[in-house]
Amino acid sequence: MLDRSARLYIAGRRGLAGSAISRAAEAAGFTDVVGATSAKVDLRDRTAVFDHLLEVRPHALVLAAAKVGGIVANDTYPADFLSENLRIQTNVLDAAHAAGVGRLLFLGSSCIYPKYAEQPIQESSLLTGALEPTNDAYAVAKIAGIMAVQSARKQYGLPWISAMPTNLYGPGDNFHPTHSHVLPALIRRFHEARENGTDQVVLWGTGTPRREFLHVDDLGRAIIHLLDHYDDPQTINVGTGTDLTIRELADTVADVVGYTGEIVQDTTRPDGTPRKLLDTSRINALGWEPRIELREGITDTYRWFLDHHTEARLGT
């Protein structure tokens, strides 16, 4: 178990995942949780990252910072997603080694797995098939992060690990109309449709792909649990072990938001990966289980949206 008085650095502390990990760390008794904003330290700037971590010198570090977005953003700006994430990861991992960080967790994404991986997806499926083309650039960057962690373990003998969460959602999410992920995008669209009296909402694709969703506060607890109990070169999945169709998700969100109009599928739009359910047996065997049911989590997230819907992060 990590020393609760040792300095824990969370890269990306203001983001969706990073803020939840910060909350979980403080709830678990960590007394020195730190992390700079992007305005203070641009993680794409190698010199700035080295100077900062060499000054702060944390005992442990969670790399939760990344350039992220939904299917539209990933498919439209693949060069940006690849370049920026590679730079962030390489800079932080190299600087962490130079600063003597003894314990590190790299946070990846379930998109690293092949598009047609056997379901539920085991960690051993990594690099066994072709990726989903709409977000392959982002996935390749995340795979490089896993390889970097494994290489640091091999070359330097460091107890660094990586974890692959399923689709995340929760308070602090990005509700931009085109650059967000599916669940927050649905919350915003149904909310605006209800407010504007719109009698029809059009959704992309057939609605049949199946997805798994994990509340960020469950992720936060999982990360602390892994820092305390996991030390293996193989990445480890973090999810709920259950999924639902995108149409079922849309119906649930509409019900929570109070939208009663028609939902229409635009089947000319892409579906993405047909199914992406993680096998969570390894993390479950370590004693971690999710606590927040999906409808409860969506209600919690919608409440946060209502309290913050005028903020810039929601986009226009």
Rank of each mutant, 00 (worst) to 15 (best):
V34W: 04
M164T: 15
A25D: 03
A222K: 02
T280D: 10
V92Q: 05
A148M: 12
L104A: 11
K115H: 13
R188M: 05
A66G: 03
R194K: 15
V202K: 14
A60S: 13
V72G: 00
L53M: 10
A20T: 10
I21W: 02
R282M: 11
G100C: 14
I283D: 00
P233C: 12
H97W: 08
S180I: 01
A27S: 05
R87D: 11
F305G: 02
A95I: 00
H308Y: 15
R194P: 03
G241T: 07
R210D: 02
I187F: 07
T134N: 10
T198N: 11
L314G: 10
L278C: 05
D217M: 04
L227A: 13
H179T: 01
D42L: 13
G197I: 12
A27D: 07
F213T: 07
P274V: 04
E293M: 14
R295S: 07
I88T: 02
S180G: 03
P171Y: 01
L158I: 10
T134G: 08
A185W: 04
V68Y: 09
S38F: 12
L168Y: 00
A25G: 01
V41L: 14
I283C: 06
P159D: 07
R46P: 06
V149M: 09
V256D: 07
G220I: 12
R57N: 05
Q89M: 14
G207L: 09
N74T: 10
A48M: 12
H97P: 00
S83V: 04
A137W: 03
L278Y: 04
V33E: 06
D251V: 07
P184M: 05
S162T: 02
A36L: 09
L43V: 12
H308P: 05
T90D: 06
E192L: 14
A11N: 07
R7H: 02
F81E: 01
E212Q: 14
V201Q: 04
L16M: 12
R221A: 10
S125E: 12
I187Q: 08
